[in-house]
Simulated scan of single mutants.
Amino acid sequence: MMQQWITIFFDVLCPVFILVLIGVWLQRKFSLDMYTLSKLNIYFLVPGIIFTKLYETALSINILLTIAGFTLLLLGLLYLISNAIAYLFRFSKSMRVAFSNSVIFYNSGNYGVPVNDLVFKQDPFAMSIQVIVLLIQNITTFSYGIFALQSNDRSPLKALLSYLRLPVLYAMLSALVLNMANIQLPDAIYLPATYISDAVIAIALITLGCQVAQLRLKKNLWKVYSSVSLRLLLSPALAAGILFLFDVQGVTAQAFMISAAMPTSVNSAIIAQEYKNEPEFSAQAVLASTICSALTVTLVIYISGQMF
């Protein structure tokens, strides 16, 4: 188990934190414009990675529907629990949305994919499960996640119309159509999309570092700790319950449970910055959950191996 912790720390966490620290340094030295960075992520980079992931992934309909169903069920349970806590402690409307987003949206991409690759030793079946979780996470983050943030100060109709202007929606739809129809894109179109996709992880983590550089670390800490507890401890526990309920075993169960243990998604902080909805809390939740995940993810990997 200690060897697993050391391997995950150096192979997964160190690259993440190096990029975050670069973002902190850049922000303190050059005072980068957060508005521009958030626009770059939302309107350019995220549509690129969603398009390429959806276009490239060989999707089995049976596995796709099963894992998508499990993921949506897990997100629904986390949504209900996080909102119940937010109402119980009388969070403001903006904080309720930010708190819920920090719990239900997790880093299944630049954290979850490397962890899956490490644990299952490049098993394509295990990776296909992780990719499906990643796709559902991206779709929900950039549909419900953005819609909920916009609904804070707009009517539902205006929030929906605003969402329809985002390129993320059309990147998802076009990629799904091309994938299902097995249409081969010419290199002149496909290669630029892959270049954009390759840039996402670095720019997203640098953006997080820029946000971290502006944090006042003593604000809303109990809310951050509550979010981290739900994200890192309750989420994999609920995933295990879902797997037992549907009698799922083997690699499928292990991969899904491990995916549910990932820290809060960087994208939740990016959209919070874009729509100016508790960006400080959101960035702190990402940072704190990523740090704490060095221990919790290792524990979940070990426990899932014993359970399934």
Rank of each mutant, 00 (worst) to 15 (best):
Q27H: 13
D33R: 15
A294H: 01
C210I: 04
S174R: 09
S38M: 06
F51D: 07
S229R: 00
A204Y: 07
F256A: 08
I189G: 05
T36C: 04
V286L: 10
G145P: 02
Y79P: 00
G112Q: 08
S259D: 08
V248F: 10
K219L: 09
L19Q: 12
L217I: 12
Q249F: 09
P279M: 09
A240F: 13
V97L: 00
G241R: 02
L78D: 08
N267S: 15
Y190H: 12
Y302W: 15
N101P: 00
N83E: 11
I146A: 11
I6M: 14
L40C: 08
A253G: 13
G305T: 10
E56P: 00
D187A: 13
A283C: 08
L64M: 12
I301S: 02
K121T: 06
S151D: 07
A294R: 03
P263Y: 01
I67T: 14
V286D: 09
A261L: 00
A294W: 00
S151F: 05
L80H: 01
P192W: 09
Y111I: 15
F147C: 02
L54Q: 06
D153A: 13
V300E: 06
V103I: 13
S197Q: 11
T264R: 08
I61H: 03
D11E: 14
S268P: 05
W25V: 14
A294D: 02
I18K: 04
M34L: 15
D11K: 15
N220L: 11
I63D: 11
T207M: 13
S102N: 14
L160F: 15
I271Y: 03
Q214P: 01
G69A: 06
L74Y: 07
M180G: 08
T52N: 02
V297Q: 07
D198S: 15
P236E: 03
V16N: 01
S282L: 10
I81A: 11
N179Q: 13
L88Q: 13
E280G: 12
A148Q: 13
T57Y: 00
L54T: 09
Y163L: 14
Q184S: 12
S229A: 15
V266G: 04
L215H: 06
A171L: 07
L134A: 10
A126Y: 04
L45Q: 03
